[in-house]
C-alpha cells in the first residue's frame, strides 16, 4: 500500500511524462484492437451473407415422380436443411428461355435443340454456414437416389473465410510485434526511473531494505502504466468506433439493415486491459531485475 502511494505520488510529480507513456501504450494497444473489431464484424457480416448459400441438387433426367417424392421427404427430414424448394425441368426451361430472349446466339441454339435439356432440381439452404459442414452436406446429398449432381455454391464464401483468416493472422503478428515494442518501451522507462532513483536505492539498500521493498514501487509503476494505457486504448477505440458507426448507420439504412459495431465489447476490453497490464508488469520486472543486480552485496 505504502509503495503504491509512493508510486502515485511520483506519477503526480511527472504528470506529463506519465501521460505520454500511457498514451504510447494506449495507441499501441488500440491498433490491433481496432483491426480485430474490423475483422470480427466483417466475419459476422459474412456469416450473415453465407446464410444464403445454396446447394443445387440436379436430378437425373429420367427420374420418376416417385423418386422425386421420396427425395422430397428425405430433404424435409434432414435436420441440417433449413429450407428447400423444387424447380421442375419445364419451369427451368421456361425461365431460361425468358432470360435469354434478348440474346440471339442462345436463341438460335435453343431453337436447334428444340427439346428441354434441363433436369429437375432442388435448391437447398443449409442451416450451417460453415464451409466444411456445407461440403459434407453436399456429399451426403450427392448419394441420394435420383441425384445426378449436387453443387455447392460456396467458393466465394470459402475465399472470404480464408481472407478473414489471413486478416486474423495479420492481427496476431501486429499485436505480437506491438506487444514486444511496448515491453521494450515500458522496460526502458522503468530502467530510466531506476537510474534517476539510483541514490535512493543505494541508500535504502545500505539501510537494510529488502529487495522486494526496492522492487515493488517499480513493478507497480509498470503495472499502472499498462493499466492506464489499456484504459486509454479503450477510450481511443470507442471514439473511433463511434465515428465509424455514424457512416455505417447511413450505409446500412440504405440496405434496410440496422447493422452497427457494438461499442461495448466486454470480452475485448478485458483482453486489452489484461494484456496491457501484463506487458507493463513484465517490462518493469525485466528492467528491475537487470538494474537491481548491480546493487548486490559483494
Amino acid at each position: 500500500m505504502q509503495a503504491l502511494k509512493l508510486v502515485l505520488m511520483r506519477m503526480r510529480d511527472n504528470v506529463l511524462s506519465t501521460f505520454m507513456i500511457c498514451l504510447v501504450v494506449g495507441v499501441a494497444m488500440s491498433l490491433p484492437g481496432l483491426f480485430y473489431v474490423g475483422v470480427d464484424n466483417l466475419s459476422k457480416l459474412s456469416n450473415h451473407m453465407q446464410d444464403e448459400t445454396e446447394i443445387s441438387l440436379y436430378l437425373k433426367l429420367d427420374v420418376s415422380q416417385e423418386t422425386i417424392s421420396t427425395l422430397d421427404v428425405a430433404l424435409a427430414k434432414n435436420i441440417e436443411i433449413k429450407q428447400h424448394h423444387f424447380v421442375s425441368k419445364d419451369e427451368a426451361w421456361l425461365r431460361f428461355q425468358e432470360k435469354s430472349a434478348t440474346n440471339n446466339e442462345i436463341n438460335k441454339v435453343i431453337l436447334q435443340i428444340n427439346k428441354n435439356p434441363l433436369p429437375d432440381a432442388y435448391f437447398i439452404q443449409a442451416k450451417s454456414s460453415n464451409p466444411e459442414a456445407l461440403e459434407s452436406l453436399k456429399n451426403s446429398l450427392q448419394k441420394l437416389p435420383g441425384v445426378e449432381q449436387a453443387l455447392l455454391n460456396s467458393e466465394w464464401a470459402k475465399r472470404l473465410s480464408i481472407l478473414l483468416g489471413l486478416g486474423e493472422k495479420i492481427i496476431f503478428f501486429i499485436a505480437a510485434l506491438l506487444a514486444f515494442t511496448l515491453l521494450i518501451i515500458i522496460g526502458n522507462t522503468v530502467r530510466m526511473q531506476i537510474l534517476t532513483q539510483k541514490d535512493e536505492i543505494e541508500v535504502s539498500n545500505l539501510m537494510g531494505a529488502t529487495s522486494s521493498f526496492i522492487r515493488t514501487p517499480f513493478l507497480y509503476a509498470g503495472i499502472l502504466y499498462g493499466l492506464m494505457g489499456g484504459l486509454l486504448a479503450i477510450a481511443i477505440m470507442s471514439g473511433i468506433m463511434q465515428t465509424f458507426n455514424y457512416s455505417i448507420a447511413q450505409v446500412s439504412s440504405l440496405y434496410n439493415s440496422d447493422f452497427s459495431i457494438p461499442l461495448f465489447n466486454p470480452k475485448l476490453f478485458t483482453v486489452i486491459i489484461g494484456a496491457a497490464t501484463t506487458i507493463g508488469w513484465l517490462g518493469s520486472y525485466i528492467a528491475v531485475n537487470r538494474s537491481i543486480q548491480s546493487f548486490k552485496i559483494n
Partner: peptide, 11 residues
C-alpha cells in the same frame, strides 16, 4: 542474501 537486509537494520 535475503537475511542481509535484516542484519543491516541493527546498525
Amino acid at each position: 542474501a535475503s537475511a542481509i537486509p535484516f542484519m543491516r537494520r541493527r546498525f
